[in-house]
Design a protein around this nucleic acid. Sequence first.
RNA 1: GCACCGAUGGCGAAGUGGUUAACGCGCUGGUCUGCAAAACCAGUACUCAUGGGUUCAAAUCCCAUUCGGUGCUCCA
Length: 493
Amino acid sequence: MATIELFNTLSGKIEALAPVGAPALRMYCCGPTVYDYGHIGNFRTFLQVDVLRRFVRQQGIETKHVMNVTDVDDKIIRNAAAAGVPIGEYTAKFERAFFEDLDALGIQRSELVAHATSCIPDMVGLIEKLAARDIAYQTEDGSWYFRIARFPEYGKLSKKDFEGIEDGARVDVDEYEKDAARDFALWKAVKPGEQHWETSLGSGRPGWHIECSAMATKFLGDTFDLHAGGEDLMFPHHENEIAQSESASGKTFARHWMHVRFLLVEGKKMSKSEGNFYTLRDLLLKGYRASAIRFLLISVPYRHQMNFTFESLAESTNAIDRLRTFHQRMLKGGFAEGLNEEIVAATAKAEQGYTASLANDLNTAEARAAIFELVRAANAAADAGTLRAANVAEILRVLDLFDGVFAVLEDRDAALTRAALAWAEAEGRLGEAAPELVANLSLGDAEIDALVAERTQAKKTRNFARADAIRNDLLAKGILIEDSKDGVRWKRK
RNA sequence: GCACCGAUGGCGAAGUGGUUAACGCGCUGGUCUGCAAAACCAGUACUCAUGGGUUCAAAUCCCAUUCGGUGCUCCA
């Protein structure tokens, strides 16, 4: 069992990550606000947390992982109103889509999913606790705010120094009157026509930050092991969570904080106005595989800014093919009995490299490299006829270990792409799908088998023109013919 | 504007003081093939944005410049 070292934003240092005072690692990850389909930036964060979660569990540490779903906020209220549906109906659709996307990307479910709207009493309780100590205060319109002046450590996570900021000086006039510029909303008073809850705090809805404090402590206790999220959440969201939670409990909130850096798309910040904004579904409809998206998004370590490009996505597809082909070759077996000592050493080196790399602040790039080195060594030995059956068993074990975190060997891609097309059809968005993809999937297996058989026949009669025509035609529809000693195979690209 | 992070081959990307600068993709060559493809193997950065400096030794530390990103406001 390796000691897992992880950068801690709070201390600014790489520190050992381990459960304290409980058998399971208690972790909280800021989940989605379900007002739209998730984009690849969202999923990079969830994927990197998935890598951590899988590795922790692989190292023999159980997890108690809570993810929240924000199902009430300004954007949801605005969009639901525009769509003319209750917010519950509006969010249900996107929440369902979100979990489908997690599954498509091989992201394991957390032990617990907490909805903001189902934890309102917990949030109210927390705010009351703060109000009793005059840390929370109500403004004239009925909203409640957190008094930052009462939390001297404010800024310790994001390393901000607020001493130079004078309360009330040159501050935009907000809709509500706060005592100090930085004070943030705990509870928002109801506005006409908005979804609201009748509580002891008055009629209204929770502020954004309070839900995470309430839900994390409700399910994980006042103090827990790890809190994770995208780098943008560090300030103000996580800073505010700390302020609320630690003010209420008087104890440390999360010990360890993990922040995943943003990605760039084609060298630029992803944004709708740049035209480089992609949801997972956009990419699936373009014909990219879910596995390739997963592999690419986790191949760059979480603390590095990564540049997402379509070229690198295509490369990931090929890299996965290499791994899958190798995996199949090992599974197929047929190697002579015995043991090749050189390969024993190569296999052990790969396993050590894999584990040490991930234990070292989740260096996924290095872990990947260790496995590819094994692939090359084993392929070369297999070609030379020196690979032995006992080696293969070990190689498969190490490959399984690797796949326990990377999760790309099993080929679910065609099924996932089909599901995406079915969704597009239901949404009337089939026009966004790549034409080759539609052509490919409209061709049934039996039809392809028939064409492949016809080509084989044509080859026998040395009618190569006809054989090549069939081959090229299928290729244009994304179907690849592979001639081998054992006969002809085909696969969908 | 202030603060922080980054810049490594055609592309993506490890490596943060000391053997020949990982790995993947691509490309080139080879094996195989009717020709291809697929698969596998081999080769593929005398050099780490630029200019200075520190050191016996720097991609790795320091300073400056240029470029990219992020935070200061909703954002994964």
